[in-house]
Amino acid sequence: MLTFLARRLVGAVPVLLGVITIAFFLVRLAPGSPFAGERAIPPAILRQLEAQYKLNGSLWEQYANYVSDVLHGDLRLSTRYRNRTVNEIIGQTLPVSLVLGGSAFCLALGFGIAAGVWSAIRHNRTADRLVQMLCLGGISIPSFVLAPLAVLLLSLESHLLPPGGWGSFRELILPASTLALPYAAVVARLTRASMLEILPMDYIRTARAKGLAPLPILFLHGLKPASLPIVAYAGPLAANLLTGSLVIEEIFGIHGMGSFFVEGVLSRDVFLVAGVTLVYSALLIGFNLLADFVSAWLDKRVQLS
């Protein structure tokens, strides 16, 4: 187990290095200077700016210096938001994004698994059909369609929930649920298919014949092995929620990492883009590692190697 952990952590280093390399060169090789503005900047000042932001010298020197700084934990100054370091921006926005993404993640899993299990026990009955229809609908209504409609109906027409902002629980409900809903549908479909495979098995019948209560059978004997495909989907789910939060943050005016990322790309802010990409990738790698541990715990046959 420890060797597995060590190997995965070592394996993550080249991936993260690759990610910042791609981000760095994509942004630096793109036309347009991060300092370009309405007016032309005199060459002397431009040189000084480049020196201040460590963007002078050949591209290789810049890259080597940057990587060494990153290894020392310094993600450098943002060129778009002057006077603010990327560390500072990430430090302020990461908690916001984590709360939003985390609650959407829990909602997607919770609702998805509940609906999937219900649908599986009611296989081919009206409830099952209804859940399946809703799921197809849910998959076809992306968050950025759902969110404006929800704001229109629930906040502006009926004043039930605030249309934007950040800080209170009530302000979290709409963004988190609209972000989660399409993925809850995907989870529900996965759960249903997987439960339908497990429930007709012999050992479930044995458990029932022994007189075990229906609920322990369903959740301990049925759902535990049936949740393996769901755990396998957790990684892609987290990645999708991350991307989805870009628009959700935009719609609800939440200052998470996503909005800074989009702004960074548009203004050629190389360190902000590379820094945020680095954090995103590290988060997802850690998350996949966790998912691997969970699936090994769920199914002892899964070898952590």
Partner: peptide
């Protein structure tokens, strides 16, 4: 598997923003 769990759409955003002018 690795690409599945990376936010690849983010790279598309970078790609589009950067390849457009050239």
């Amino acid at each position: 598997d690795l690409l599945y769990s990376l936010p690849t759409l983010i790279f598309v955003i970078v790609l589009i923003a950067l390849l457009e002018a050239p």
